[in-house]
């Protein structure tokens, strides 16, 4: 089978410092894979290389069997890290999603009937149909993630690339997002994500790539999430626990814990929940 994405001995650096070295990676049609690795490992850089936004210093990147050679990758939906979004920009959910059709809709500045229908459809599919007119800032983290996923899906991509879709949302929402991606994958979508959540990756993903400047290991999390590979990837002391068919990863605490450092920490005060104090808290949250 021809890989959808193919990296052959790719090296990359922003300046003289190498960020990625000798990366060989295949992504097959229908695959669902996650890049994991510590901060600064080069995950985002690797995504951007595949997207064709950054150019490799050495090596070759092929998408659909064709070398990118400085062009952006064809038929790819990209969901950037939410932190990189300008939340004060004056756009509504619908306007953001419409951006995904920038190449398909006509020359007029306003969206056509078909554009609007597709926006409605994709928003319904991601269960945020009622939010079309909202400003993007006025959404929860999970909803924001869905909006940008909707923008990617409306472009009808063959490959979906998401940078840290589970960062900045609570555990349940993160689980939700991964579940949604699993559904898309079931319908045939090829998906590549990055994540810091090793436990979620272990539970939800069929394939992980451990990255730290080079590919340390790749395979099903069951096989490659071992103390040795994770220690090498994270340059730390990792603890891997298997229980009830699940896999848990935890960074071992430092030699000295907080209590060693501060034997008598300043204690908080548990307030009784009177209606009055409740009222005060509510109004202060509203005013933010």
């Amino acid at each position: 089978m021809q890989p959808l994405v193919e990296l052959n001995h790719v090296a990359f650096g922003y300046g003289s410092e190498p960020v990625l070295e000798d990366i060989c990676l295949h992504l097959h049609p229908g695959q669902f894979a996650a890049l994991v690795g510590p901060s600064g490992a080069g995950k985002t850089s690797l995504l951007k290389l595949i997207l064709g936004v950054l150019q490799p210093a050495r090596g070759e990147i092929c998408v659909h069997g064709k070398s990118l050679n400085g062009r952006p990758a064809p038929r790819v939906g990209y969901v950037p890290q939410l932190e990189s979004v300008d939340w004060n920009f004056p756009v509504t959910v619908e306007q953001v999603v419409l951006m995904g059709r920038v190449r398909r809709s006509g020359v007029w500045p306003w969206p056509g009937v078909e554009d609007r229908r597709r926006v409605r459809e994709v928003l319904e599919r991601l269960e945020i149909g009622g939010l079309a007119g909202r400003h993007i800032r006025d959404l929860s983290g999970g909803q924001q993630q869905r909006v940008f996923l909707a923008r990617a899906l409306i472009a009808e991509p063959d490959l979906l690339v998401l940078d840290e879709p589970t960062t900045g949302v609570d555990m349940r929402t993160a689980e939700n997002v991964l579940h949604m991606l699993a559904h898309l994958n079931q319908q045939g979508m090829t998906i590549l994500i990055t994540t810091h959540d090793l436990n979620a990756a272990a539970g939800h993903l069929p394939w992980v790539v451990c990255l730290n400047r080079r590919v340390i290991a790749q395979g099903p999390p069951d096989e490659i999430f071992t103390t040795e590979t994770l220690n090498e990837t994270y340059r730390g002391d990792m603890l891997v626990i298997r229980q009830d068919g699940m896999l848990f990863v935890q960074q071992k605490p430092h030699g000295h814990t907080y209590h060693d450092l501060v034997p008598n920490p300043v204690a908080g005060e548990a307030m009784p929940q009177t209606p009055e104090s409740n009222n005060g808290r509510l109004s202060s949250t509203v005013s933010v």
């Binding site: 064709g52 920009f89 951006m99």
Partner: peptide, 16 residues
């Protein structure tokens, strides 16, 4: 549309 997308996020616009 192209200007709006580029203004909002030039890097992502390039991908699209």
């Amino acid at each position: 549309k192209q200007l709006l997308f580029t203004t909002f996020d030039a890097e992502v616009a390039q991908v699209y």
